[in-house]
Design a protein around this nucleic acid. Structure first.
Length: 424
RNA sequence: GGAGAGGUGGGUGAGUGGCUGAAACCAAUAGUUUGCUAAACUGUCGUAGGGGUUAAACUCUACCGGGGGUUCGAAUCCCCCCCUCUCCGCCA
């Protein structure tokens, strides 16, 4: 959620920025916000004046009673009772206005950073960097959904039997490969100074609001009705919410956390031919990195985090490219996002494996995540996160790109974690 | 699932109707002094918002888990809800 104060001070700049997202009716919603805000403040001033008067009168009643002037006290009391009625009405109006205002604010996405290109579709994302060579596969090379059957390492049918489509069962070396990747990602994050967290994989409603999944995106999360809990779509939610309503000590900044969790996504309505196999799942594993920084450091941190992701991909020897997302392709909460895609040789397409974003104060505003600066002023912090990395598409790329007639070669860096060099 | 206790500022914690936006302590911060990797002393220090000012000063309002009620007046009394803790039960 954007800060109201910023909307007041820089509404033109915000409308300009939102144009890069092709966010509909930006100008209209912003002007509505300002209008409601103005009305609210006017009403508030009025209420406050009334309340000042009432407070003074109440005090006088007490004084009169103490002085033994019962009659005067009684008549003043009756007088107060009347003005209280109007005060009550006005307070209700104020509440209604405030809710309308908040609802409007919820609808406004984050303002893209200055360097984010305008654009509506993924085609307008900017390729910032490419690394690695795309392998040429042998005759008869297979896509990963065939390879997993050939080597019997991931079983979709078993998953369907016990849960449903999109919940695969990892078997034998397939399961070990998962575990190896998770360990590799976590140990690299550890070396980079991220404190590992193992959070719950369900969160309450307040947490959903804190990181911006709610309102509006409840349809994308699994919900446990009986207990009012959501299955997390990413570790971003529980880990970032660890710092909800927290006043951070300046000395503790930046905060760096990493966590492995399974992630659950309903992906309602997003299935099709291009999401075969591991390309899209309801449950998948991911190691997430999260940082909380002062405003002045967040963009430098964004670069640091994307270098961390690049390093992982290079160690895994996967050809990848780094994209700067255009306004229209960015998530609602983000001010700037880099996506990382690996090339899947058998499918002949790029697969998104990581997304690294700076949310600036958009989440912190909701989270009330702040610190006191040297002047003693309370300041919102910036939140950032990134996948480092999401497993399924990495697995898909490893299987496809590293396949040989003899079997699938495990990347060197993973062998200490898997305990085997080949899947055959 | 049953019974009980409790939710107060960055933290611990006092406060049962007006003198309480809230004692005390800790943390933080500014300074003084002595000095040597620190102590002592003094000051400041909740959040959000309105008015006001070039900016301050100043001033007002709300907020003691959330919502409602009683009252001229509520952190304090009443009702509902949420959450946490303890004991019992069940159980990895």
């Amino acid at each position: 959620m954007l800060q109201l104060q910023v909307l007041r001070d820089e509404s033109a700049k915000i409308i300009d920025g939102l144009a890069k997202r092709y966010f509909k009716d930006a100008a209209e919603i912003v002007s509505k916000v300002l209008e409601k805000d103005k009305a609210k403040r006017a009403l508030q001033t009025q209420i406050q004046e009334e309340e000042t008067k009432l407070n003074g009168e109440s005090k006088r009643v007490g004084d009169l009673m103490k002085a033994g002037k019962q009659d005067e006290a009684t008549s003043l009391r009756n007088q107060i009772a009347q003005s209280k009625e109007t005060a009550k009405d006005n307070n209700e109006k104020l509440k209604a206005l405030d809710k309308e205002l908040t609802d409007l604010l919820y609808k406004i996405p984050n303002v893209p950073a200055a360097i984010v290109p305008a654009g509506k579709t993924p085609e307008e994302n900017k390729v910032e960097y490419e690394h690695g060579t795309i392998p040429t596969l042998h005759e008869g090379a297979l896509p990963h959904w065939e390879l997993i059957k050939k080597y019997d390492i991931i079983d979709f049918d078993l998953g369907i039997k016990i849960a449903g489509a999109g919940f695969p069962v990892y078997k034998g070396k397939g399961a070990k490969l998962q575990r190896a990747l998770i360990n590799f990602f976590l140990s690299d994050a550890d070396k980079a100074g991220y404190i590992e967290m193992q959070p719950p994989i369900v969160v309450n409603e307040a947490s959903g609001y804190g990181t911006g999944q709610l309102p509006d995106k409840e349809g994308q999360m699994y919900f446990i009705n009986e207990d009012g809990l959501y299955l997390i779509p990413t570790a971003e939610v529980p880990i970032t919410n660890l710092y909800r309503d927290v006043m951070v000590n300046e000395a503790d900044l930046p905060i760096k956390n990493a966590g492995y969790t399974p992630c659950f996504r309903r992906e309602a309505g997003s299935w099709g031919a291009h999401v075969r196999g591991l390309n899209r799942l309801h449950q998948f594993d991911k190691v997430e990195i999260v940082q909380i920084t002062k405003a002045e450091n967040s963009y430098q941190t964004l670069e640091e985090m994307s270098l961390h992701v690049q390093d992982l991909l290079e160690k895994l020897e996967l050809p990848y490219r780094k994209l700067l997302l255009c306004g229209g392709d960015m998530g609602f909460n983000s001010a700037m996002t880099y996506d990382f895609e690996v090339f899947s040789a058998a499918q002949q397409r790029w697969l998104e494996v990581s997304s690294v974003s700076n949310f600036e104060t958009f989440q912190a505003n909701r989270l009330k995540l702040r610190y006191k600066n040297k002047e003693g002023k309370t300041q919102l912090l910036h939140t950032l996160n990134g996948s480092a990395l999401a497993l399924p598409r990495i697995v898909a790329a490893i299987l496809e790109n590293n396949q040989t007639p003899e079997g699938i070669k495990i990347p060197k860096v993973l062998v200490p974690f898997t305990g085997f060099e080949w899947i055959m």
